[in-house]
Simulated scan of single mutants.
Amino acid sequence: MPRELLGIEWDVPRVLLVALVAATLLGLVVAASTSSAAFGLYNPGWEGTSELRAVADETGTETTVIQNTTGYRSAGPDSVAVVLAPDRGYTDREAARIRAFLDRGGTLVVAEDVGTGGNELLAAVGASARVNGTLLRDERFNYRSPAMPLARNVTANETLTRGVDRLTLNYASVVEPGDDNTTVLVRSSGFAYLDTNDNGELDDSERLASRPVATVERAGQGRVVVVSDPSLFINTMLERSGNRRFARNLLGSEERLLLDFSHTADLPPLTLAVVTVRNTPLLQTLVGCLAVGLVGAWGAGWFGRFGGLLGRVRGDGRSADAAPVTEADLVAYLRERHPEWEESRIRRIAQGISTERGEGGADD
């Protein structure tokens, strides 16, 4: 038997419809707030980097996600910016903003493997290191596969490699230090080689050697850290040996963290809206005024009056301003709605409603 709630009779079909609409809306909200892009900060899948936010929270560093290089303008020497596998190049103006950030003493971390966006950015900001782009393999020291080498040679560094004894790589390349001012932080084992012909085997022309996979160098008044494997920071790899500690050292090396996603996969729509509001003072003011207005409207009882007006609107289009509903109207309505009821019951209910209305009760 249907039950009435908030002036609406809830039968099974209506409940199922509301449940379906709610499930659909929930699905849309989830879809609008998550991403499936590789290296996506809001991608909770194995190839996303959503776990990076948790690592940043562990360090207590103030974290900002930026979708435009203008975010570098307010970053000082106490800031570190992270760029993961940019999928398009930085313009001269954008690169100039990052150079100015380095000139103020900031730290820039660029993680790249086979793409060109990272090397283009390194050249634009005056760094000498470059990522080779050829796949690194290690037949002896690896995690499950030669394409996932264990980089076991770690240079002691007070902040960047503290507590790190190795890195677990995933289809990584190597870093080519540009000059003597570049310090190698981590190297592969001596059994690693570059698969120059991409055949998955060690050939006579390929040489075993320990090669750099992470470096640091001075640039302006700041420094640039280069990592030859952006997948080191994805969700499924952060738990591998040494990776989380290394990421934590990088993200927490300064007081403020910029996660630069201005040249990688777009943020999901809902998240983009939130980030845009956070980064735009004018929008923050407008949203704040709207919230205050809604609270004021609620306090003044406007929502109650509007709800009461809606509650008085009849299914046949008549509203509170239409002619009053008579007892005869109620009898006719009840006959149509409940043909199984006896005539005496219909008239008794109609009379009771009319009596209640006459005593100042609800008029619907």
Rank of each mutant, 00 (worst) to 15 (best):
L5R: 05
E9R: 04
W10T: 03
D11E: 07
L17Q: 02
V21W: 04
G27K: 11
L28S: 11
A32E: 08
S33G: 12
S36I: 12
Y42F: 15
P44W: 12
W46D: 14
W46R: 10
E47K: 06
G48I: 11
G48S: 11
A54V: 00
V55D: 01
T59D: 04
E62C: 00
T64Y: 07
V65M: 07
I66M: 13
Y72W: 06
R73L: 13
V82N: 12
P86D: 13
G89Q: 05
R97Y: 06
I98L: 00
R99P: 04
R99C: 03
A100L: 01
D103R: 02
T107W: 03
L108G: 10
V109F: 03
E112Y: 03
D113H: 08
G115C: 00
A123R: 09
A124P: 05
S128F: 05
G133R: 06
T134S: 06
L135D: 06
L135V: 11
L136H: 07
R137Q: 07
E139M: 03
S145Y: 06
A151P: 08
N153K: 05
N153S: 04
E158Q: 03
L160F: 12
R162C: 00
G163C: 01
L167W: 05
L169W: 04
A172D: 10
A172T: 13
V174C: 13
E176H: 14
D180I: 02
N181W: 00
T182M: 03
T183H: 11
T183E: 08
V186F: 07
R187K: 14
A192I: 13
R207F: 09
S210M: 07
R211I: 14
P212R: 11
V213E: 11
A214N: 08
T215A: 04
V216E: 01
A219C: 07
R223S: 02
R223T: 01
V225Y: 02
V226T: 15
V226Y: 12
V227L: 14
L232Y: 07
M237T: 05
E239I: 00
S241F: 01
F246S: 02
L251V: 00
R256Q: 11
L259K: 09
T264L: 07
L270R: 15
L272C: 09
A273G: 12
L282Y: 10
T285K: 10
V287Y: 15
L290I: 14
L290D: 08
L294V: 15
V295G: 04
A300M: 14
A300D: 07
F306L: 15
G308R: 15
L309D: 12
R312F: 04
S319G: 14
P324Y: 03
T326V: 09
E327Y: 03
L330T: 09
A332H: 01
L334T: 04
R337K: 02
R345L: 08
I346T: 05
I346N: 03
R347F: 00
A350R: 01
T355K: 06
D363P: 01
